[in-house]
Nucleic acid binder design. Structure first.
Lengths: 192, 192
DNA sequence: GTCTATATTGCGATAGAC
DNA sequence: GTCTATCGCAATATAGAC
């Protein structure tokens, strides 16, 4: 891994842990084992470096979520797999946490990858809900876009509850509550 | 309003807007119209001031939520009123946003009021869900503590979606999705 | 209680040698 | 490409006059 990569990786870690306003160039350099000159050679400054880091994190998140959502199974099973997927709950979501950062929100450039990632996730889940509705898995009257927003919000809010209480239990409780409302999964009618 | 009060109010605003790591003593003094000496006379330093500010915000939030949750009506109606209560969606939750702050989470003193407020809210909602279950408003099999966590998570996560997209619509969508799963409210059996 | 002065450290970046 | 030197400014206080 080259110096440039190490700088990006260090920035990703620190943005996840401390956010944008809480992350200093010096801290990044120390984590990356790189000097000042090195950092300012590869990047124009902190915003440029953050943009590269956020972009990489967003891409990784889409890949990880995509793997779960693309797996075979009923709509309920795939949503359930997404909700129950392994997570570092107490660390929170490396993308979602950036929405609480005033400087990220103030910058269209930095906010864009955050917005796009969450929008992508909502659309992906809405499509799965639509499939489930077509197959009679969910009670009719459900609006796919709304339910998709609820699913993503439950996850993002679950991190808040977990970090407030200092325990991952709160996240799990929120997920169980949502799954209980969604299920138990109705056996689909077999079209033989 | 005395200088001490103005300092606390300024800190509350800035903590809400920028979080703990993003809020400097100098910014607090400027917002409060107070000098350095004044601030360090009334408070021992930034953590002390933040503690006073967070305490007041937490108290205010419990009062506001309590007013909605204590109103008369069915469990569904009270939960619905809580979810639909007026909010400054794009500003986020002044208590929940603190969970993303590394220095708040690292300090037991600063985290305590955050933890207690969210725990109080979850317990309050769980009690209402229990009432609703007793009256047959919800499908049996629902676990009150879990559903309470889902409700709070939907709100907290709704802020994340809204801030990511730059629009309150995402928050509303998440709430609609949850209400659709919870309802439509079944007419309770009348015990005449 | 509030003010100004001062101190130390870190932030965020530029310059120029190697 | 990486290093050290330097810069101007802000963070987070302390000291002591008024």
């Amino acid at each position: 891994m080259g110096t440039q990569d190490r700088l990006i990786e260090a920035t990703r870690e620190l943005l996840w842990e401390r956010g944008y306003v809480g992350t200093s160039p010096k801290a990044i350099q120390q984590h990356a084992g790189a000097g000042q000159g090195s950092m300012y050679h590869h990047f124009t400054g902190k915003p440029d470096l953050a943009l590269a880091a956020i972009g990489r994190t967003a891409e990784e998140m889409r890949e990880a979520a995509g793997r779960v959502l693309d797996a075979p199974g009923s709509a309920y099973e795939r949503i359930s797999a997404y909700l129950l997927r392994e997570r570092d709950v107490l660390r929170g979501c490396p993308v979602g946490r950036l929405t609480m950062d005033p400087e990220v929100i103030a910058s269209d450039e930095l906010r864009a990858p955050v917005d796009e990632t969450i929008a992508w996730l909502r659309e992906r889940l809405a499509a799965i809900v639509r499939e489930g509705l077509d197959r009679g898995e969910f009670t009719p009257g459900i609006t796919p876009d709304d339910l998709a927003a609820t699913i993503v919000a439950t996850v993002q809010g679950g991190y808040v509850l977990a970090r407030a209480s200092g325990s991952a239990d709160a996240f799990d409780a929120g997920v169980r509550g949502l799954l209980a409302l969604l299920g138990p999964p109705v056996e689909p009618v077999l079209h033989i």
